[in-house]
Write a protein that binds this DNA or RNA. Sequence first.
DNA 1: TTTTTTATGTAAGAAAACCTAACGTTAGTT
DNA 2: AACTAACGTTAGGTTTTCTTACATAAAAAA
Lengths: 128, 128
Amino acid sequence: MTHRVRRTMPLLPISIVMQLTELTARQIRYYEEHELIQPARSEGNKRMFSLNDVDTLLEIKDFLDQGINIAGIKKIHALRTQPKIEKTAPQTISDTELRQILRDEILNSNAFDRGGIRQGDLSRFFKK
Amino acid sequence: MTHRVRRTMPLLPISIVMQLTELTARQIRYYEEHELIQPARSEGNKRMFSLNDVDTLLEIKDFLDQGINIAGIKKIHALRTQPKIEKTAPQTISDTELRQILRDEILNSNAFDRGGIRQGDLSRFFKK
DNA sequence: TTTTTTATGTAAGAAAACCTAACGTTAGTT
DNA sequence: AACTAACGTTAGGTTTTCTTACATAAAAAA
């Protein structure tokens, strides 16, 4: 009967997530509104975030810094969670959309002199 | 400037800690009152717990189940955080106290048929 | 260059969560 | 019988979070 804490367990209130990600509450809610994250809710309707949610938010932040817009990030997420291309279900991403995303990526890839391209890696927050 | 999340970082509100430990808010506050834990506080004075705090609470729960009282647990904690016996600073634990603690331990050690004697191990909550 | 859209800021009012303080309770101890 | 330890419970107040709505700057589109 012992439940288990995982990276998917809703543990953190929005105030802590704000600290961890340096995002405002408005931003976090906006990203949820656009279905980039789906934080759990407490009984009283308060958002409760998992470590994975924080990971995703850090990733979103990184992508936004790279000039990719929310629509683009949404597609990228979709591509990752459902990367199998079945012939029964045709892809919802048009060629033009995909090309636009990639073009944005390339155009902005060296706009800033940043280090690695690891996005949304929560592990960098952990010491031990 | 990147801050880091550690096991000592205050992340969790009391409601989540209640779920993780299956303790009531009253119990948790009571243990703090008796200095078994020292959770951080938010700007607005709300308790914020670290993973280490949760660990400690699980340990406290285990000890209480074993029949050790709060005073005893407090001593045990003190013995662990300051286990060096300097001749300059004499121990504050009397022999009678120590014997009482050990006697309680022995008397209750097989009162229930439980498995290992690992106390307060948060790691058992983590899957990956 | 206007117009629209995107990604936010900000404010208001309500509700949930948490706080301290205080008194009640129950099982053990003295 | 009286006391203590370890809570439960209630009350009133404060903090945090919620939704909704309107404002805005910069970028994109027309």
